[in-house]
Amino acid sequence: MKEYKLIATAASGIEALVGRELKDLGIPCEVENGRAIFHGDLETIGKANLWLRTADRIKIVIGEFEAITFESLFDQVKELPWEDFLPMDAEFPVSGKSIKSTLFSVSDCQALTKKAIVNRLSDYYSRYGRLPETGAKFPIEIALLKDKVTITLDTTGSSLFKRGYRLEKGGAPLKENMAAAIISLTTWRNNRPFYDPVCGSGTFCIEAALMGRNIAPGLQRDFLFEDWPWVDDSIMLELRKEAKAAINHEVELDILGTDIDHKMIEIAKENAKAAGVADDISFKQMQLKDFTTTKEYGVIVANPPYGERLGEEEEARKIYRQMGKVYKKLDTWSVYVLTSDLHFETYYNSKATKKRKLYNGAIRTDLFQYWGKRPPRVKREEA
């Protein structure tokens, strides 16, 4: 089976998590800003799409070269083996971006790329004039960075954060892959309590349940490359079969999501049901300040309303104050709060153990981390 150079794209700040996931799948990779680079065949492409929780897309690298003139760009694009990827009736929209490059006009780069591909395919298929573009979709991107051109083919389709379970969402939803990334940055394991006090549509809790049961995040959706005529259907059939067999049905999860809005609780329940993890999560309407527990060594993950997103800034800071008072008593619990308010620690009334800069879409946020006491080590029985 043919091997390709591949890219898994990711939000800034979480590319290392994507790299870790790939390595856990047995796929060697190199991590760069906003992406992980690896090599593999169609099975590798399917496995990455199916299993990566924190990535955005999986792309095939069609070509890489330097170009500072439009003539050079056209000629080098035309030299690429497009007939190996695009059938005569392929629909191939071309998107683009240019950063710090001589060829700064994105629209011109896109148009020339499209024209070069059409010329190549017209010659190959002995068809002149417009190509039909009535078949499967092959989204192409031309990206220029400091005069280096990278041309890629998207295998994913709708971004990987679209798992397929979110039937409804709240007013300020967190993308599923970002939620999974944040959980990956915590100390949570599937044998410890997990709690989201402002759960909204339930994304944190659902992603934790999927991780806790080892359910592939892409198990309920399709991927664009499956429609390509040169991709054998048996590849994804086998990968999905293996993914279903890998689900951990034995573990007992302790996951709680609460929200002051009863409508959001109902939405969260429906989303959990759609994800197949409704029995693993308890959703309750409850005010944050009313939370009490006798459990130990749990993990709290929260994405409270930012002042600029939902409600006024002072209302958001009132929530931070409540968190500080309630969670101060839970010395064995670890707390992780995502917010764009850089003064969060002042209102929480405690300095974070660690902070990590992340981006929720275009919004700069920080993950404030408060680490609780570690569980005691289990002594090994003497032989």
Rank of each mutant, 00 (worst) to 15 (best):
R57H: 08
R57A: 03
I58Y: 03
K59Y: 10
K59Q: 14
K59F: 08
K59D: 15
I60L: 05
I60H: 07
I60A: 10
V61W: 03
V61R: 11
I62H: 07
I62T: 05
I62F: 00
G63Y: 04
F65C: 09
F65L: 09
F65A: 07
E66R: 15
A67M: 03
I68C: 12
T69H: 08
T69Y: 07
F70R: 14
F70E: 13
F70Y: 15
E71I: 12
L73G: 09
F74Y: 15
F74V: 07
D75P: 08
Q76E: 11
E79K: 15
L80N: 04
P81T: 03
P81A: 01
P81D: 02
E83M: 06
F85S: 01
F85K: 08
P87H: 08
M88C: 11
M88F: 10
D89S: 07
D89F: 00
D89A: 08
F92W: 08
V94L: 03
V94D: 01
S95N: 07
S95W: 08
S95M: 09
S95F: 09
S95E: 06
S95K: 14
K97W: 12
K97I: 11
S98G: 02
S98T: 03
S98E: 00
K100D: 12
S101I: 08
S101P: 00
T102K: 14
F104C: 13
S105P: 04
S107K: 13
S107R: 05
S107H: 10
S107A: 10
D108S: 14
D108P: 09
D108N: 15
D108F: 14
C109L: 11
C109M: 06
L112S: 00
T113L: 03
K114M: 07
K114R: 07
K115D: 11
K115I: 09
A116C: 05
A116M: 05
A116S: 06
I117A: 00
V118I: 13
V118S: 11
N119K: 15
R120Y: 09
L121A: 13
S122H: 12
D123K: 07
Y124P: 12
Y124A: 10
Y125M: 08
S126M: 12
S126D: 14
S126F: 13
R127S: 13
Y128Q: 07
G129K: 07
R130P: 13
R130K: 15
R130M: 14
L131T: 06
P132C: 07
P132Y: 06
E133A: 04
T134P: 02
K137Q: 14
F138P: 10
P139T: 11
P139V: 10
I140C: 03
I140P: 04
E141L: 10
E141D: 12
L144M: 03
L144E: 00
L145I: 12
L145P: 08
V149F: 05
V149P: 00
I151F: 01
I151V: 02
I151T: 02
T152S: 05
L153H: 09
L153A: 09
D154P: 05
